[in-house]
């Protein structure tokens, strides 16, 4: 069983590297992406500085207009950036779904690890997927694979420098409805 566990970690590392490699080949190295990315970074920084310099309340009409215009331009660039990414992401997504279903077949019905905790009921469907019996401490391939991917993929992106910068994320409000820059 331990060999399976380690094999899944290895598979996850390989797929993360393959995914990043393919994305680099199709997106990151293209001139259009690099141009848009640096533009978004620059604008995010500028917008953050502007917001830092004047509090929202002390803005006069002209400054507010300028800020709105900057924000609109940033949004447009962000949209373009996601569009550039989208096509290849779809292609990679399809390839990986096929790969995942292949691994799913290989590990079908196999207990790949023993969980040291009892997963909550709505996770049990994932952690006990396609496994015989009802010992919910048994772990299926898909659960371990998702966990590995969550940790390995993001760290790989960060090590390789492909993760989006914090300023851009904050300004574009991808993860928050109300982006708040550093004070």
């Amino acid at each position: 069983m331990w060999a399976d566990t380690l094999l899944i970690v290895f598979i996850s590392v390989c797929t993360a590297l393959l995914g990043e490699g393919l994305t680099w080949l199709m997106v990151y190295r293209t001139e259009k992406y690099q141009k848009l990315k640096s533009e978004v970074e620059r604008q995010s920084k500028r917008l953050e500085k502007m917001k830092e310099a004047h509090g929202e309340s002390s803005l006069d009409k002209q400054q507010k207009k300028k800020m709105d215009r900057e924000e609109e331009r940033l949004k447009q660039n962000n949209r373009d950036l996601s569009l550039v990414k989208m096509k290849s992401m779809f292609a990679i997504g399809f390839a990986f779904t096929a790969l995942l279903s292949m691994f799913n077949n290989i590990f079908d019905g196999r207990v790949v690890a023993r969980l040291p905790f009892l997963p909550i009921s709505w996770i049990q469907g994932l952690s006990h997927r396609n496994l015989p019996g009802d010992d919910y401490y048994d772990c299926s391939f898909i659960f371990l694979y998702i966990l590995c991917t969550m940790s390995i993929r993001q760290n790989t992106q960060k090590i390789l420098g492909f993760a989006p910068s914090r300023t851009a994320t904050k300004q574009s409000g991808i993860f928050g409805t109300n982006p708040q820059p550093y004070k």
Binding site: W2, L6, V9, P116, C139, L147, S151
Partner: peptide
């Protein structure tokens, strides 16, 4: 996620 993976691996082994 990293914690869960290492915990599960060591515990399983």
């Amino acid at each position: 996620a990293g914690f869960l993976v290492t915990w599960i691996i060591i515990y399983t082994g």
